[in-house]
Design a protein around this nucleic acid. Sequence first.
DNA 1: CGGCATCTTGATTTACCTCAACCCGTGTGG
DNA 2: CCACACGGGTTGAGGTAAATCAAGATGCCG
Lengths: 238, 238
Amino acid sequence: MSIKKIKKHSCVTCVNRCFIKEISDTQILQAISEKKEITFYEKKQQILSEGNPVHSILFIYSGKVKEYKKGIASKQQIVRFSNQGDILGHRGINSNIVPISATALEDTVICSIPRQEVLNLLQNDFNLIYKLLMFFADELNNSEVRERNMAHMTVPEKIADTILYLKKVYGIDKNNFLNIDLSRKDIAYYAGTTKEQVSKTLSDFKNDGIIDLDVKSIQIIHEQMLKNMTVLHSKMAF
Amino acid sequence: MSIKKIKKHSCVTCVNRCFIKEISDTQILQAISEKKEITFYEKKQQILSEGNPVHSILFIYSGKVKEYKKGIASKQQIVRFSNQGDILGHRGINSNIVPISATALEDTVICSIPRQEVLNLLQNDFNLIYKLLMFFADELNNSEVRERNMAHMTVPEKIADTILYLKKVYGIDKNNFLNIDLSRKDIAYYAGTTKEQVSKTLSDFKNDGIIDLDVKSIQIIHEQMLKNMTVLHSKMAF
DNA sequence: CGGCATCTTGATTTACCTCAACCCGTGTGG
DNA sequence: CCACACGGGTTGAGGTAAATCAAGATGCCG
């Protein structure tokens, strides 16, 4: 379990669609590229820890990550799963403290750019700060939807919603298997329930022919049935 | 129940601390001030409705507002209570659709600035867009905290949290009464529970000497006990 | 091969939602 | 002016979804 710094590559030639690639001036991009640091994290290693100081804004060069808040009695609330090209720790842009923890779900390579460098970039590039603003507006909206879902959905509904979310973030392979293997615990921590409920509900879904389970991986059979479950049959609130 | 347009005042001389007052150039502020529209809403009138097109960014000139998402079977999930000087509908800045509904909790005067005008302003004022970005980062963090709270807290904990939140937003008078009268239903819709549970829990709190109830208004007696309840006794999650 | 972690499934408990009755204050109409 | 209807609020009695507890099964790593 060691954090290894590895050789730098240039953002200019990188194939990832990181937010930082919104910079259109190649020279500026190259300059920032030279200021970044690249770090390797093994599966299960902690990348960010709630309450620690923020030094950098992070991007996932490769790998998969969960972001979570600490909850009651060693429970977590996972607020986001992230994939290659995604930004991490951005919520800390407004403070000296990271408000969130992050852990590698598989071996992961992280690019980190000093926070002050990012702030300088934002100051000189309207397009960049504008895109970031819009990204935050989207994230805020997503989070508010989840606020409601946590409060109103039943366990099966929350798990159906989680499966669809994982498909959105990590995609599926040609056989409709989710491109991510999570423990029941992590699924529970995102859905806002317990590992036992996840296990039971996934079994139910399997019996109902909605999904299939192969070892740990989830195969989506009837996506529409999952979607139907996540529609809150709102009678139009006043 | 009529929506009345009322006489314009200038943002330059307005005492509210709206986000728009971050504009330091008085002439620009005056110019935008002349483009705004002022609307009066009676108590219980709807200001924004989820799914409708966004035309403007709104500010509360006076009054109090709840913002909510529609939930199951006519239930709402209130995501924010807002007060004089607060911004409304900002989540829609990135889309043509408002993702949220808003209703006046008491008679309210709203200033609305056309969305395109705000976008123009942002483009030409780094300080303004920067402040907005930081505001969004804070809001996102708040929302993620609530995501966790909805999933992990018990009903009494959620209600204690709600009381403290209402104090933060609306303040208390010299006798420690919250400066807001909400129905049990609205408290429930924010806390993520039912009106009956709110009623029972408030009675319990009263019996325990934590709060007192006068007609509808809540008086905070032991704020520390409320705070203690909202601390998730985390054993440090991994 | 043994030991540890995760998963599954069933049994039990519990927190909370729902339902229902009753109270109170306000408004409305005969 | 009183009757009564109505919307909130309170309180208690069930019912139920989901958390917890517990025991096996399965899989993985040294």
